[in-house]
Amino acid sequence: SPVPFPPAVCTRELCVFSFYTLGVMSGATDEVATGAEVVDLLVAMCRAALQSSRKGIIFEPYPSVVDPFNPKILAFSPKRKSYNRLQKALDSVLLIRRMAQGPYSEIKKQMDKIDPLAYPLLQWILASNRSHIVKLPWNRQLKFMHTPHQFLLISGPPSKEARFQTARKLHGSTFAFHGSHIENWHSILRNGLVNASYTKFQLHGAAYGKGIYLSPISSISFGYSGMNCILKTHPSSLFLQNRNLNCIALCEVITSKDLQKHGNIWVCPISDHVCTRFLFVYENGQVGDVHINTQEARIHREILQVIASAQL
């Protein structure tokens, strides 16, 4: 059966107020059938973007949240950004999450006592995510990635997914890794991977021209994720509590003539030709297998099997 897409979140103020009045976002937290770890992942990515020195560029979209005490005004608005107030509300979400390990829906009252904007912010973080993410159970994970924190993106942002499927029918596809700092994923999950070459969003060089940089070899993308500069810290029992997170994506890419291959560095100049399918999260100095090659038949077969089993 087709996967229902999460509701789109329009940032226009009229839409935000309408959503609030009609209760469109009120059930967002309760409907997260994907479990607490996916919620924790989204919160962790939001925190990383908010704490980045580049937050003015990469913390996009900025929340639009109605004031619970005055539903005619916005407590958080892209037109009046307050990163400090946003950080305070997010800290309250994190504090309650550490104290109570139950579902988020059960701890709304505790959040409201500490900060009335904490729970509305959490609702926005969940409702604004445009990708359908599921945590892979242990028996369906890609073991060669060496992390228990594996997530499958069953679908990307709907409009992009539709264009991708059309291109795949014409040209076929394969899989490749994409490494990006954890702080960038708040935006990527909501906007999709974009061609950031020669823009303010670019963090690394573009030696092979404009496009989304990918590699069939895991070690190359691990480097771009910042994993080669990890500081070892004491392990934490809670995934959410780790501030030292790194993320690598396994993407499906259209194999048209537009895909430029420079040895093991591939450049795709068309954003719609790349869709993130897996996220692998590493904490506190964990590393994955650096010798994985997605073009090996065995690896390719395992990837397809996991995707197929998750969509049954």
Rank of each mutant, 00 (worst) to 15 (best):
residue 153 L to I: 15
residue 181 H to C: 03
residue 141 Q to I: 14
residue 194 V to H: 01
residue 153 L to R: 08
residue 136 L to R: 13
residue 166 T to D: 13
residue 157 P to G: 02
residue 197 S to T: 04
residue 160 K to M: 08
residue 168 R to D: 11
residue 197 S to A: 11
residue 158 P to G: 00
residue 161 E to P: 02
residue 164 F to M: 03
residue 153 L to K: 08
residue 180 S to R: 04
residue 179 G to R: 05
residue 195 N to S: 03
residue 152 L to M: 15
residue 141 Q to A: 15
residue 187 S to D: 03
residue 152 L to S: 11
residue 198 Y to I: 03
residue 146 H to A: 05
residue 154 I to F: 04
residue 135 K to I: 04
residue 152 L to N: 11
residue 162 A to V: 07
residue 176 A to P: 09
residue 155 S to T: 07
residue 162 A to Y: 02
residue 163 R to T: 01
residue 188 I to D: 09
residue 191 N to F: 01
residue 188 I to Q: 09
residue 176 A to C: 10
residue 195 N to H: 00
residue 170 L to F: 06
residue 153 L to E: 10
residue 139 N to R: 09
residue 186 H to F: 14
residue 187 S to K: 07
residue 167 A to Q: 15
residue 154 I to A: 08
residue 185 W to M: 15
residue 162 A to C: 01
residue 175 F to Q: 11
residue 148 P to K: 07
residue 169 K to P: 00
residue 198 Y to G: 03
residue 174 T to S: 14
residue 176 A to R: 08
residue 148 P to R: 07
residue 174 T to F: 05
residue 188 I to V: 14
residue 183 E to F: 10
residue 178 H to S: 07
residue 166 T to A: 13
residue 163 R to Y: 00
residue 182 I to W: 01
residue 198 Y to H: 13
residue 172 G to Q: 04
residue 182 I to D: 01
residue 174 T to A: 12
residue 176 A to D: 10
residue 198 Y to V: 04
residue 144 F to C: 08
residue 159 S to L: 12
residue 146 H to W: 03
residue 179 G to C: 08
residue 197 S to R: 01
residue 158 P to M: 00
residue 138 W to G: 08
residue 167 A to F: 13
residue 162 A to I: 06
residue 203 L to D: 01
residue 173 S to Y: 10
residue 203 L to A: 02
residue 168 R to N: 11
residue 174 T to E: 12
residue 192 G to C: 04
residue 140 R to K: 15
residue 178 H to P: 06
residue 143 K to H: 13
residue 194 V to E: 03
residue 159 S to T: 09
residue 144 F to K: 09
residue 190 R to N: 03
residue 187 S to Y: 02
residue 199 T to P: 08
residue 177 F to R: 00
residue 200 K to M: 09
residue 147 T to F: 06
residue 165 Q to E: 10
residue 153 L to P: 11
residue 174 T to I: 01
residue 160 K to C: 00
residue 174 T to G: 11
residue 187 S to M: 11
residue 171 H to K: 12
